[in-house]
């Protein structure tokens, strides 16, 4: 299932505090926050994409573009936090593996995350490094993909919780999840 730019943008809109669907007169928006972004560099973005390749289902393609669009559309402050925890993950990986995280194979990346205990801890924005990686890297990326229809369609849901997908869908006959996941 191909992730689209629209998926990423909507997910970030929803998560980024932008009331784009209201007519509040709030104009602070996605493009504005993208242009203001400075902290997040190539190395961090590559690390995030490399993490997504581990934690996203293999049925999803277009991961790189999705992650780039989604992360760069987050509000600058949140993006900065994601970037700095990503950097910590990179240095940790260099310490234990002698190489940068994105340069490892998917299996090795998986093993780095699990050996650190990222799969065993709760996510905590103020916690230990594994807890912060869980919060700012792993869960941020999972939030992005599973509040977008492309992610949720893999489980047969067109309009997941957290996605502003139009309120008509709740009236529809449930669809067979398998037939959607092509």
């Amino acid at each position: 299932m191909e992730l689209t730019r629209r998926d990423a943008i909507i997910a970030a809109f929803a998560g980024g505090g932008v009331t784009a669907f209201a007519t509040f007169g709030q104009t602070e928006g996605l493009l504005q926050s993208r242009n203001e972004t400075t902290e997040l560099g190539d190395a961090e973005m590559r690390t995030l994409v490399a993490t997504a390749e581990v934690i996203y289902p293999s049925a999803i393609s277009g991961i790189e573009t999705f992650v780039e669009n989604y992360i760069s559309a987050l509000p600058p402050s949140q993006q900065g936090l994601v970037a700095s925890v990503t950097d910590e993950l990179r240095s940790h990986t260099r310490n234990v593996r002698g190489r940068d995280f994105p340069n490892l194979s998917i299996g090795e990346r998986n093993s780095v995350l699990r050996t650190m205990g990222v799969d065993r801890v709760g996510s905590d924005a103020y916690g230990t490094l594994p807890e912060r990686v869980r919060y700012y890297v792993v869960n941020q990326l999972l939030y992005g993909v599973y509040t977008s229809p492309t992610g949720s369609r893999l489980v047969g849901i067109q309009n997941p919780v957290g996605h502003p997908g139009g309120y008509e869908s709740y009236q529809n006959h449930p669809e067979n999840p398998q037939s959607d996941a092509d």
Binding site: A22, G25, V161, Y167
Partner: peptide, 23 residues
């Protein structure tokens, strides 16, 4: 539907605890 300059419900599906759209 749009009312009082506020958006129509767009189906975020999380009215409790917060409606992001203001519907």
């Amino acid at each position: 539907e749009t009312y009082d300059d506020r958006s129509q419900c767009v189906g975020f599906s999380i009215c409790i605890p917060v409606c992001p759209s203001g519907a």
